[in-house]
Design a protein around this nucleic acid. Structure first.
Length: 714
DNA sequence: AGCACGCCGACT
DNA sequence: GTCGGCGTGCTC
């Protein structure tokens, strides 16, 4: 067949080192590189006949490009950024008879067209161009690369998250004509914040302000986000807003439509379906639309000339992607803001430790209202210790302390009353009913659980406990499990028979309720908006929210409480919130003072003292015992890296949903935590990535799982 | 990851 | 002599 095949300078099996040496020498000597030859000697593109392709083969050894020859007939379509199909695989090396095409067809992205290839062998030709749509532009590629580096993951993995799957029908439709930039908006309710007007003006003037925004309670924040977007658009730049879920996205979408009119922004959420979603994404990529509101995956939206990235409620766990390499929206948007002149807005009714750190380090400025403004916008918060029981018969039936009971009764005279109840199964630990000491296994001190609400089992060692008694006070009674929203609804409904009861929870989430008196029972995060605001709210079972064995338990509880309390009228209008939780606890006090930023600052100081994230950067490495040991021994970690453990990790617990970092059932895995000081995170990620790559290339043993910023250390 | 190439021992 | 074990290394 082709003489090219016989003259192939391809790798000779058996002398790889020599070959590598030769290649090195050749390169250094600047010997003119071989012009591309294909296996069949097909006609090639006249200009830039080499395509650098990122092969989409998941966890391949290394992130590297492979060169392919561009056949003449694909020349026009094979532009940088398009999806291509190529032959890839060892079979392709069987060149002797020239008959084997070898390798299977796999997908890839054409990254770049160049004149010559570094590769010494004969190039295979691109098999086809999937579509001429250039979906992977240079900016998105650079961002994906940065994210892969930040999370010690592969570029291919990140691209899977960043570029939506192709849909032919969506691609064939033209995107609408872009509208001209709008005029700069008036500051509106941003005037309520000290630096609010200045922030908006900076965006409108093409600046790149960075702010951590503690939003006032009440219904104005979607509009405030929309105004920030409008200000950015008015400067001729694009804007991107990421929120935790579709419901919130819908609210901001509505506000954007109100502020910008139709056609200037795209809504990018999972629940719009693949075709519509891809159409929206294409409209953004093609520059038809310059503003994006969306959920997690929208963090990669290819908005051109970004002037603002914004995240709402960064403490919500859905901002953390659950696919490798598990990037977090806040971190990705930070990376985006760091490139070019791009503003950054992180907002919420509460404050995460990470957000506090952005302020503490001076990277972002705080954007908040003064105490006076806050006092009138926020409801009055009252606490009642959860041991305090009602005297009133009806209150007792509903298991409510009397203050809570009165608040509900009074509130119902003036409007709807919200009752926040943790989800059933949310309480991770059983505790003594009298003294709240956690119930632990007498053999291994693991937490006890009551899977069928009858018998007690240890969730670590599985042993049954038949005769539990509290080791602290001797009581034999355990705290009842969290009562689900449904049962709470039934009981409250009986206690207030004249009032309608609505529930909102996981399977059935209400978006809004009217302003008439009603009891609205909701799990955290599912609270409907009330027209005119709730007259009162009751936050139940605070002990359960705080009892989780998690570094974030306090921060998370406070976040859920402020979110619910923000839906209640300000105390000017008589809005009241009663929280049933120990008033001496710090998160409870932070709620009473409405000072989430102060709480986060204090947490941050404590984390700094203890060397916990985010003040240090942590990575977890998980895998079978020998694999993990081997990995750690050869990883070449930065000298100051501190390895904690390894300790055994429980395999996936039956019944609980399996998380990506759980060991497969029946296998014994271990986990090591690796900690470095701030500023060495990139070096740590690079070392881990390098070690993993070396491991894969050697094909040695089981792979280990690497996770930067593991969410479950506790 | 696949998959071929290659260098060793037991079979028609 | 040849078939096939899996150990090594490459895939443009």
């Amino acid at each position: 067949m082709s003489s090219d095949d016989e003259q192939s300078a391809g790798p000779e099996a058996g002398v790889p080192e020599q070959l590598a040496l030769i290649r090195e020498t050749v390169r250094r000597a600047k010997v003119p590189r071989a012009k591309p030859r294909t296996w069949r000697g097909a006609a090639l593109a006249k200009e830039l006949p080499v395509a650098r392709v990122l092969v989409n083969k998941g966890v391949l050894h290394l992130d590297q490009y492979f060169d392919y020859a561009v056949p003449e007939e694909l020349d026009a379509d094979a532009q940088p950024g398009v999806r291509v199909r190529v032959r890839f695989g060892a079979g392709g090396r069987n060149v002797r008879d020239g008959r084997r095409e070898g390798g299977g067809l796999i997908d890839g992205f054409l990254v770049e067209r160049v004149a010559e290839s570094d590769y010494q062998g004969a190039l295979a030709a691109l098999a086809s161009v999937v579509s001429p749509e250039p979906v992977l532009g240079p900016e998105l590629l650079a961002l994906s690369r940065a994210v892969a580096d930040r999370y010690a993951g592969s570029l291919a993995d990140v691209l899977q998250l960043a570029v939506p799957p192709r849909n032919g029908r969506a691609e064939s439709k033209p995107s609408p004509e872009p509208l001209p930039p709008p005029l700069a908006p008036l500051p509106g309710s941003w005037e309520r914040y000290g630096q609010g007007t200045a922030f908006l003006r900076a965006l409108a003037e093409g600046g790149a302000p960075r702010a951590v925004w503690t939003a006032l309670p009440g219904p104005h924040w979607p509009q405030e986000i929309a105004l920030a977007v409008a200000a950015t658009l008015s400067s001729g730049r694009g804007a991107l807003v990421v929120v935790p879920d579709g419901r919130v996205a819908g609210r901001v979408d509505a506000a954007l439509t109100q502020v910008l009119g139709a056609g200037r922004h795209a809504l990018l959420t999972a629940d719009s379906g693949p075709e519509k979603r891809y159409r929206q994404w294409l409209a953004v990529r093609r520059g038809s639309v310059r503003a994006v509101i969306g959920t997690r995956a929208a963090m990669f939206a290819p908005v051109a000339d970004l002037g603002l990235v914004a995240i709402w409620d960064d403490g919500d766990s859905s901002h953390s992607d659950d696919n490798a390499p598990f990037p977090h929206v806040r971190e990705v948007l930070e990376l985006r803001a760091a490139h070019g002149r791009c503003g950054f807005l992180l907002g919420g009714t509460s404050c995460t430790v990470e957000a506090a750190q952005l302020v503490e380090s001076g990277w972002a400025l705080p954007l908040s209202a003064d105490r006076e403004r806050l006092r009138s916008a926020a409801p009055l918060i009252r606490t009642v210790g959860d041991g305090e029981l009602a005297r009133d018969g009806a209150a007792k039936a509903a298991r409510l302390p009397s203050l809570a009971w009165q608040t509900v009764r009074d509130g119902l005279r003036g409007g709807p009353v919200l009752v926040q109840v943790p989800r059933r199964g949310y309480a991770p630990r059983l505790a003594c009913e009298r003294c709240r000491t956690p119930a632990r296994c007498r053999h291994c001190a693991g937490p006890l659980e009551a899977p069928d609400q009858q018998d007690l089992d240890c969730s670590w060692c599985g042993r049954a406990e038949r005769a539990w008694h509290c080791t602290a006070c001797g009581s034999t009674r355990l705290r009842a499990q969290i009562v689900g929203a449904r049962r709470t609804a039934e009981e409250l409904g009986r206690a207030f028979p004249a009032v309608p009861v609505r529930t909102s929870g996981r399977d059935h989430i209400l978006d809004a309720v009217p302003g008439e008196p009603a009891l609205v029972i909701s799990t955290p995060g599912a609270e409907p908006i009330a027209e005119g605001g709730y007259a009162a709210a009751l936050l139940l079972d605070g002990w359960a929210m705080l009892g989780r064995p998690d570094l974030r338990a306090g921060e998370d509880a406070l976040r859920r409480w402020t979110a619910a309390a923000s839906l209640v009228r300000g105390q000017d209008e008589g809005g009241t919130v009663v929280i049933v939780a120990e008033p001496t606890l710090r998160p409870v006090q932070a709620l009473v003072r409405w000072d989430p930023a102060g709480y986060a600052r204090r947490e941050l100081a404590e984390r700094a003292e203890l060397g916990f994230p985010p003040v240090s950067r942590m990575a977890s490495v998980t895998g079978p015992v020998e694999a993990l040991a081997g990995f750690l021994a050869t990883a070449g970690l930065p000298p100051e890296a501190e390895v904690l453990g390894p300790v055994p990790v429980p395999s996936a617990e039956p019944g609980r949903p399996r998380r990506p970092w759980d060991a497969p059932p029946g296998e014994t895995w271990e986990r090591a935590l690796i900690r470095v000081v701030p500023g060495r995170g990139a070096a740590l990620a690079a070392a881990l990535k390098g070690a993993q790559a070396a491991r894969m290339a050697r094909g040695g043993g089981d792979p280990v799982r690497i996770r930067i910023d593991p969410p479950d250390i506790g």
